[in-house]
Nucleic acid binder design. Sequence first.
DNA 1: AAATTCTTGCAAAATCTATCAAAATCTACC
DNA 2: GGTAGATTTTGATAGATTTTGCAAGAATTT
Lengths: 306, 306
Amino acid sequence: MQSEERQKRIEEYLQKVEFASLEELARQVDASISTVRRDLTQLEAVGNLRRTHGGARVIVPKSDEFAFSSRDTLQLAEKEAIGQACASLIQPSQSVIIDAGTTAFHVARHLESLTLQIITNSLPVANLFASAQRIEVVVTGGVIYPRLGVLVGPLAVEAFSKIHADVAIMSGGGITLEGVTNSHALLIDIQQAMIRAASKVIFCFDSTKFGRRSVAQLCDLSSIDTVVTDAGAPSDLVRGLRERGVEVLVAPAPFQPVSTPAPVPAPSPAPPKAIKHIPRRRPVPAKAAVITESPSETSDSRMGWD
Amino acid sequence: MQSEERQKRIEEYLQKVEFASLEELARQVDASISTVRRDLTQLEAVGNLRRTHGGARVIVPKSDEFAFSSRDTLQLAEKEAIGQACASLIQPSQSVIIDAGTTAFHVARHLESLTLQIITNSLPVANLFASAQRIEVVVTGGVIYPRLGVLVGPLAVEAFSKIHADVAIMSGGGITLEGVTNSHALLIDIQQAMIRAASKVIFCFDSTKFGRRSVAQLCDLSSIDTVVTDAGAPSDLVRGLRERGVEVLVAPAPFQPVSTPAPVPAPSPAPPKAIKHIPRRRPVPAKAAVITESPSETSDSRMGWD
DNA sequence: AAATTCTTGCAAAATCTATCAAAATCTACC
DNA sequence: GGTAGATTTTGATAGATTTTGCAAGAATTT
């Protein structure tokens, strides 16, 4: 059987069963486990499925909830740390605007125990608080942007232009010393309305957003009061932000030292506590075979804030 | 089984039962307690559920379990039948307002396969369509009424006053020949706005609502084009409605005749389908009586439309 | 105080990555 | 048309890594 045919059959089979083990797939296409492994690596690079331990799964099971509230979230540990740190900035009884986007969602998860008024255009955030008695949730109107559950459009902008809040918890696609950028004009309008509506503006960025520039300018640094990020943020940019009057809160590193692109020479083999094996970040499987596509667009080219 | 598949099955199982013990989950996915523990920790970090002592529970009961969920399984079969019947009245490409409330929700579930524009103030309905590519969903703004996920307040009323739709699918607390009643002033305002916004008004009532009168008047019969109900509806009332120009569609009885002791010989021919629909221009519904009641906040005084 | 339940550490099992040699396929040249 | 050599694909294997189940001690609920 040709490799093309094999891969196609793998995809089709997965489409039917949603999950499959390597052994199952190998039997299905009558090839060895190794071969199936390689096929899966290629197919994943193209973006049609996702490998898991011991097998693979389709990327968009039609039954799944909002894309980001499930396991696809990138930088999960970092975002959790950011969420916790950012939540500590919020006082009880404040009114809080919460942006859509994964990072802001993780902040919201840490606010459940407080007594607050929440204003949001994110359906997942709204769901999160829907049954919390102590929190009043105002949902802006709007049209649902599929799969992300963001409410967009004039109704949303209008809603924010009519209210006022103590704090806005925002996220974005990238931050540089020139300001914040995000990827979609629809979002920009709404986010600018959020910023105008809030007395204090807090932006949450995981460290990969630093130095990145997305398509559309959202605001410049003067609009921002505080930035919350994780320990991986480049220190020169952090310093630059502080020099320009932006308060920067760096969340402590999560438990496992994941993805520390910084040098970390560690010449002395200092035994890290009593830990047996030191998990290291494995490199992105950039080694894919003959594929000539632009690499960066794998798996995550949706609206770009995660 | 792969860990991803296992986690997904845990989530699905939890969605069904709302709570589950570790042992129960371990049996369900055929893994050890330890493994389930680890899975739960991960799933909680992602945000889809919450651990408890000895087990886990869902955070956001998906779709129909918004609180009216686990409620009366009795009427469920009837509501399903009503949902199906009512959905058959909807044409592709129409714009449809969907009321909050269990009955309307069940109608919504039967609309997923159509290509429509949906306007709703119900969070459960919004969630239902959130990832449906073929359906555009407009969510009105508003404050979340806890446990039911209805968006209430001026934002919601305003949103409906600015739009127009082909059909409104409504539910209410009770229907008599004097009109429709519902239990809460906040709802009344919004529902009246819905009725004004729609060209055709369809009310869905399970048969227990017939002859019942709730606290507040919502509208009179002249505002209604069609009523959809189940086979248990009292025939005199059904006849009365028809005499007053309301089209009545009776959904066939569900498979197993629950709680319908009467064999219902049905000697009266009255083929409901054959009735000619006479849409009339209706006056703007008179302002409803202002309810000054303080609806006892007991756990059971939920908004009353089921 | 008793009984669960949770956390932590650890070793066994399963799986992944990287590598290599054999098989299959392609290319160039006669 | 056919064949030797180069290239790609395949299957297998070894070592690294992750996952899993278990058990002891800590923390909790009753």
